[in-house]
Amino acid sequence: MTETPLISVRDLSVHFPIGGAGFGKKLFVRAVDNVSIDIAPGTFFGLVGESGSGKTTLGRALLKAVPLTSGHVQYRDNGVDLDLRALSKAELKEYRKRCQLIFQDPYAALSPRMTVRDIIAEPLEVMKITSSRQETDERVREIAAKCRINLEHLRRFPHAFSGGQRQRISIARALVCNPRFLVADECVAALDVSIQADILNLLNSLQKELGLTFLFISHDLSVVAHTCDHVAVMYLGQIVEIAPTKKLFANTRHPYTHSLLSAIPHLDPDAEKKAIKLEGEIPSPINPPPGCKFHTRCPFARDRCKVESPEWRQMDDEHFAACHFTDELNLSRA
């Protein structure tokens, strides 16, 4: 990548301690384990994986909402250079203004006791960005219009709105303080397909208009395929494949990505039957399997996979995968 990344993550790990195993031994949930990614400014960076793969934890780590165990996260934007593991109080405040989160469930994310106007204005008041009520109101109306919220609705309470409308309110709240970087955590998972497309289009146009950078977390590969520029596939706390979206879908190099793709039910009832079906379920991140973490479910696993953890390998330009046998497997979708 020639451009300086907005967020650059190196060997990041997030481990949560859980109750000891006795005899003084401590157990850890390895939610994120040695992850390195670069997120270029002004792009949609997609993160996919099954539940329990650590997507959400990685997203929260980039917002500094969970303690980082080890590794580096660097935020660089127009001369602002912040190291997320060594933020001073003032720097953290500054970082909070620059980064926001859009939640999954628009029914749970909005307080039922606040009007839409108050919900959207709250970040401004908390971070003391605006100085007068008039200024706040102006800013709220401006952002509400951008998110296609009917300005007459600002006085109403969230219960009066449908899922799609609530998600637009939630997006407006995230954008009101002019952030640079947004984490959208499964932000369309709770919506119906007819509304989902509308929200995705809105995010896309906002991103272009305001020059935002998104970390777009989703379990739905087809949504990610349509939204993101870059995609990283996560499994048990590690990234197994990372590539520009088109390359990833045209030329899959990791068996896990391939099985995720082939598990999507095809819309054509006469479509050919899938190539790979995964057996079993994602193992526990407390006690992950040795070697390649995917070997317990991988249809191509060999003895080497059980002992030796695969290295990051560069396929071409910006395409990386972590698999011993990626060159021997012919995984591309014909």
Partner: peptide, 26 residues
């Protein structure tokens, strides 16, 4: 037709998504 068009198509990544306009009435 609208429901089918709103679905992201994995075989055509460039295609624009067409939502069903408006919200479901109460």
């Amino acid at each position: 037709k609208g429901l089918l068009k709103a679905l992201p198509d994995l075989d055509d990544l460039g295609a624009a998504l067409t939502p069903v306009a408006g919200d479901i009435p109460s």
